[in-house]
Design a protein around this nucleic acid. Structure first.
Lengths: 189, 189, 189, 189
DNA sequence: CATGAATGAGCTTTCATTCAT
DNA sequence: CATGAATGAAAGCTCATTCAT
């Protein structure tokens, strides 16, 4: 049943986030999922093969946050502010999952899958830039496809610096947020 | 003797880059280093504890590339172009090491050390922005300390997308390079 | 299944007795038990943790010998003679196990368990003295609980001197036996 | 120099008593002795070979206590009381060493040496009984050589039960002391 | 004599994987 | 489909021992 598969995915996310990919044993996952050891192998051949499912989940969460936070009919400044704060919010709330994905993807052969898993975010960002360009809100010499990747990298790397590597104060976060918003606005205009 | 320690570090970099962190056994490292199994443990308690040394090495390599590629007395456009191409070059030539560091640091307790290991690059970028501001080449409302991190994140994340996750053509790289240079110039001005 | 656990206990007794606790490897035990290396760890965390089980076995053997050798309705002299010879017999036949228990218990944290494992023997000896006192066969000023321990220590220490530390002749053993029987009779009367 | 050998013996006693024979590494001993790793092997071929030296030390301590506590010209009752309390005292103060000796001797080939190391105590006890017999204080049918061993076993086993296996109250110790003294007097008379 | 870095055999322990139920 | 006891290959790690200095 898909029920069990879903249980495995959820338990794997939980365990990976909690104790890291390498320190998570199949036995941890099945214990958390409340299933038998052998059952795991009916659905996945290894713990690493659960990673793409987790990545899909993470991207879905990102897209949910993006869609619920940003109104594409707003003006550019408002949209940039909303975009940055959405990425910050999701990075904070799912930081263990992102850290884990970095670790897991970077080391395995699944690395190349990242591209296709991430495409909903790239696609959305492409639309975002495209519309802004049609409205004349951004520089004419921007290539929307290329810049969508640059922009996502910019915002996410800043968010990760803050939430994964440091443990900064609220003021610190707010200041960095503002700096990034100005940086982005200036970059696009 | 530090001779052996150095040998271990070099062998570890080589093995990690070649077969990934998790697939590297202590026995691989000592074989590559030409030392006995027990000798490894005289210097490091685990393979993960070699990571900070590797990170130091990587940052040193980055700084070498930066220093040899960028003349701070050049004008801003030239400096940005040189900076981006330096980061691209180093990311390409050491991509296995960077992928490995992401994986290794993200999963371990050493994550917080990243900040201090990376500080030479942050410091350099701070000087870079400070001087450009004094010369009136960049926006007045930039906070140089904050933007140094944003800028490093921006350039590195773009380089990593290219070299770690994709395997793009030369033209593709050149195009993305130009897009990023324009993006950065626009962001700072 | 308890089947495997029992096999492990038996194999451990055999190996410990044969080659000593410290010279026995887990691999020896599992080979003797006819199970896989990993199976051992399903039941015991270390070879030392099998010791209490072995101690239980040893005390059971002692009690079997005692019960089958001594008729509590006999007169005191007969009972003392039977008691001493029972302890001598069991000490001889299980001397490796006793030597091993001394070594193992004395060095580990399991030392305090000894008390409770040994209690069947203490309890039996208490009854023995109690009944003899009721029959007026022993001194009135004996405290049966205290003396039960003293008596067991007396007989066992003599038996161990003979069988564990020395390798005496039969005549020697017989002579020491008689000396101890007289000593004990005199002590109790 | 004998200086170093003495240092090794003292450090070994300390470490064996503190962490047990099997958990003591040569490196612990040399660290405690303040000498180099290799130096140990100039004096002893293994940690077990230090055991007889420790046993000698223990017996010397016993004999010191005995000689300073017992006046052979006293009457029998006084001498028994002094003897038992001397053994109790030394067992308490050196209990770790005795526990260790039991473990160490019982498991090694050095077991047979115990006999000769212990002989000063056996010899003294033989004299003790001999003199008492000459004075007519003890049973005529006692064999002094045989009973010396029985008597030492009796007193030591009781002391060990108290100090090694239990952790009894002072009252408990006093009561057991009295019971043993009465037992011994009755046994010898 | 004394040192202590280096050695590597040999042990413990783990844990992904299987398969009879 | 689901189970979980059993497996054993494969790794980690230790520590007695050596030997060049």
């Amino acid at each position: 049943m898909l029920d069990k598969k879903q249980k495995i995915i959820e338990a794997t996310i939980e365990q990976f986030a909690f104790k890291g990919v390498e320190n998570t044993k199949i036995s941890d996952i099945v214990k958390a999922a409340g299933i038998a050891q052998g059952t795991f192998y009916l659905y996945f051949p290894s713990k690493f093969s659960v990673m793409p499912e987790i990545a899909k989940y993470a991207v879905e969460e990102i897209m949910k946050e993006i869609h619920s936070s940003i109104d594409l009919s707003d003006d550019l400044d408002k949209k940039i502010e909303d975009l940055v704060s959405a990425v910050f919010r999701i990075t904070e709330s799912k930081k263990e999952i992102f850290a884990m994905l970095y670790a897991g993807l970077a080391q395995s052969e699944h690395l190349k899958q990242w591209e296709s898993i991430y495409s909903p975010f790239y696609d959305w960002m492409y639309i975002f830039l495209q519309q802004s360009m049609e409205k004349g809100e951004i520089r004419k010499n921007i290539n929307c496809a290329r810049t969508s990747r640059i922009l996502i990298g910019l915002i996410e790397s800043t968010a990760e610096q803050l939430y994964l590597y440091d443990s900064p104060s609220n003021d610190e976060i707010k200041a960095q947020y503002k700096e990034l918003v100005e940086f982005t606005k200036s970059a696009l205009k």
